[in-house]
Nucleic acid binder design. Sequence first.
RNA 1: GGCGCGGUGGCCGAGGAGUUAGGCAGCGGUCUGCAAAACCGCUUACACGGGUGCGAAUCCCGUCCGUGCCUCCA
Length: 471
Amino acid sequence: MKLHNTLTKKIDDFLPLKAQQARLYSCGPTVYDHIHIGNLSSFIVADTLRRVLAASGFEPRHVMNFTDVDDKTIARSRERYPDVPPMEALRRLTAEYSRIFLDDMRAVGNDVAAITFVKATDNIEAMRQLITKLHADGFAYVTDDGVYFSIEAYRRSGKTYGQLTEITAQSTSEARIQNDEYDKASVHDFALWKAWRAGEPAWEFELAGKNLKGRPGWHVECSVMSSGQLGQPFDIHTGGIDLIFPHHENEIAQSTAGQTDPLYAKYFVHNEHLLVDGKKMSKSLGNFYTLKDVQAKGFDPLAFRLLVLQAHYRSQAHFSWENLAAAQNRLNDLRALAALRWQPREVAHDSGTEALRDIPQQLTDILANDLDTPEALAFLSRVATQLLAVHIEKDMVDHFEAMLQGIDELLGLELMKVGDITAAQKELIAGREAARARQDWAESDRLRDKLAKQGVGLRDHPHGVIWFPQS
RNA sequence: GGCGCGGUGGCCGAGGAGUUAGGCAGCGGUCUGCAAAACCGCUUACACGGGUGCGAAUCCCGUCCGUGCCUCCA
């Protein structure tokens, strides 16, 4: 298995730290609103990575967090529930959007059962402990508005701040320097803990004899939850490229300050952004979509998954309705392939069952090359074209189903969910065949139209009619 | 200003020095009761200018254009 590692800026062989384990941490959603399809694309990549690791013989352990306390969740919860205590308002809001998030995840084929989810608010004690330790070791300082991490102290200890991306004086924008309104010693220093402000939820915290009631900073949440669940160092950390700086740099700094082992995570895998109309999604540009919008236009969420997988994760994919329609057509084609398992040919014809059995392995090999999903789909399309031309015979069904199962495990396309048609629909098909036999074309076409309305398309072949799901 | 990534046929999108990517759409044809599918053919792709190669879409330099990070944004 090869993966592009932001730490080395190269495609590296994946060599796990412990035996065959693949410990994977993905920065999860901030649960204050519906996530957008760009967020979702990131999670589709992480899900696919876990699938490919598993197929490549590793034992993945995949952890994802819910950021359920931060500026946005707090602001939104106060708007939505102005009359309940802040902590309860926060809990209600984040519970609601966590649930919606999981629904979206499942809809696009991400296997949430394979992920261990952790909530920031369930890990406050561990955060307090880490901050206390950082403070005791001289890497954190207390100010009026919270506790900050000192990058200067980190650098003095001999470690590098900026392992993922170069950080220099010139690379710091004027805007950042000018907007440096907080009580920090240096521009890059970041909050580990934020002091309480009226109306906000808060947790008790005593540090160096001072009462520091407040809440954790964003970066410390991920540091604590990743190592708490996976140990440190762990194998792979994933996220969108926008998280490289400052989020992941800060995680590395916090987690390795004062540690003898300078490694936080061995591999950092970052996915590029999904562009809409050639631009990054943003509310102000009006190119901001959620999965609800995709569904409202009649598209299958799995068509969106296919759209994401059609592009390599390190390139900017383009979302457009036209592009999504193409992906939907491709999905329909794959479903037509899957439907063959309910209608095998009686006639034996000598097509190799061995070939079918090898397909998941061939897909795995392609995907193990830095998650080459576009090539994998191209391969799959060639397979589909070939099989749809010859169909499958009765004694190949087991192998065929094993192949579909393997494809689903790798790509999450849920082809095994393509069910059989009803007995009534089978009768309609038989009735049409009878009508055709007596050359009653009007009746034949009527039955075909009726089936089409029920989502069943037909193709007449020399060796018989086959049906396929039609959306 | 600093650090990246990219510009491929009507659209989308891989690949990446000589060999058909793939998807979507269009046109012509074969087949078919009709359709769908399939198959065959066509629409002669790699931003521009230089350079290095026997050979460049693929490497190098430059230009233009797009895009991202440098703001708690996946």
